[in-house]
Design a protein around this nucleic acid. Structure first.
Lengths: 214, 214
DNA sequence: CTTGACAGCTTACACCATAAGCCATACGGT
DNA sequence: ACCGTATGGCTTATGGTGTAAGCTGTCAAG
């Protein structure tokens, strides 16, 4: 047993990291709206106020979650090789992250923070492009466009496939008010139905990348 | 004075519509997180519980806000003429709506509801396309792609230009933790800076529309 | 004048984030 | 071996939140 272990055999000591992990897990399975310091504490076998010894407040906790999300993206997106491949893999890993964390992913755009991991990730792809002779301005513009597209489509997938909380089947019927006429419900069925969103994404992304080349 | 007026000279009577309008205005100027039934009631010169005579609960209120947002989009997006123009104007009016209501717009994807106005709008554009010989499958796929792109880029603009609450100047310094190295802050400056997002949007959109034609 | 509908109010409850301060343990310096 | 100090978790308390339940006063129709 190391010297840092407290009371061997009891619960592991709290850590900022452990708290953030637990928060992300909780959001994934119960939805962002269900997360509270009390419940999160309970999840970790601890009272709510104990969390504040490791996290300045709930906002800070969510900052940590965003950081975590970005670092997952950073890990997954490869940069070596053609910068176009890099951009593409960046888009894919963003998309996969959103699908992996439907409840939490919204925080990435709504929480107004750019953690170091995100910036490192962006910087890597940008330099890959500029090293290949792309102007810095274009490198940024294209990356921004692709990022927006990737996030936009992924959020769309997620919004309709599960009502942002919980993880029920979620039929289209739950998306429309009971009084909308049936022909409009049919529109919703098709527009929001899972008509192969992956193919959809590939199509759009390919479209943009080809546009860049031309 | 009409027969529906109560106590002339006092405040106008509450209405679902008036409440929703006030809520949207409140969110626009104070941020979504600041909205509460109590404050909204105060804004209307009324106690919180009075709102529940016109709105089943807060969720229903937010549904109403989403409905309002979509109806603004519906009003602005024109459908007659070339369906491509229709798609384009749809994208533009979505974008403008998001910029007009930075705090509330998130609800459109996160609140899991498709009001009749949204479906009417979608249907109109789809039939414009299919009437011109586009297959229904492609009409939907392209509209979905463009919608995602428009929302994705607009959310991006909004996320960095004002920290989703409040309406301060918001320098990039507020987006990054104080401990990130300066060269990464520079990346944030460029990536999140307002490097003409309109041009950015036009570029991406044009890119997709041209891709559709080819 | 009575009656009923309805708009707004009051009260009440469970839950939330979090400020302030308590207590026991663990560790570093002597 | 001791002691001071830092630390991690706990308790208690405050003000804000959504909303259930029920009251009151005003209006319009009978």
């Amino acid at each position: 047993m190391t010297t840092t272990e407290h009371r061997v055999g009891q619960r592991a000591p709290l850590t900022r990291e452990r708290i953030i992990d637990a928060a992300l897990r909780y959001i994934d399975s119960h939805g962002l709206g269900e997360l509270s310091m009390h419940k999160l504490g309970a999840e970790l076998g601890v009272k709510a106020m104990s969390l504040y010894k490791h996290v300045v407040n709930k906002d800070d906790l969510l900052d940590g979650v965003v950081e975590q999300l970005w670092s997952e993206v950073e890990d997954a997106a490869l940069v070596d090789g053609d910068w176009r491949k890099g951009y593409e893999s960046f888009a894919y890993s963003l998309r996969e992250m959103v699908h992996r964390h439907p409840g939490a992913a919204f925080l990435i755009t709504s929480h107004g923070i750019m953690p170091a991991s995100s910036l490192r990730c962006i910087q890597a792809h940008i330099t890959a492009a500029t090293d290949s002779g792309v102007s810095e301005e274009r490198a940024y513009a294209w990356l921004r466009t692709i990022t927006s597209f990737a996030l936009g489509t992924a959020f769309n997938d997620v919004a309709w496939s599960s009502s942002q909380q919980e993880c029920q089947p979620n039929t289209v019927a739950e998306l429309v008010r009971p009084d909308v006429p049936p022909e409009l419900v049919a529109v919703a069925e098709i527009f929001c139905g899972q008509a192969d969103p992956d193919a959809q994404f590939e199509l759009g992304l390919d479209l943009m990348l080809r546009g860049i080349d031309s």
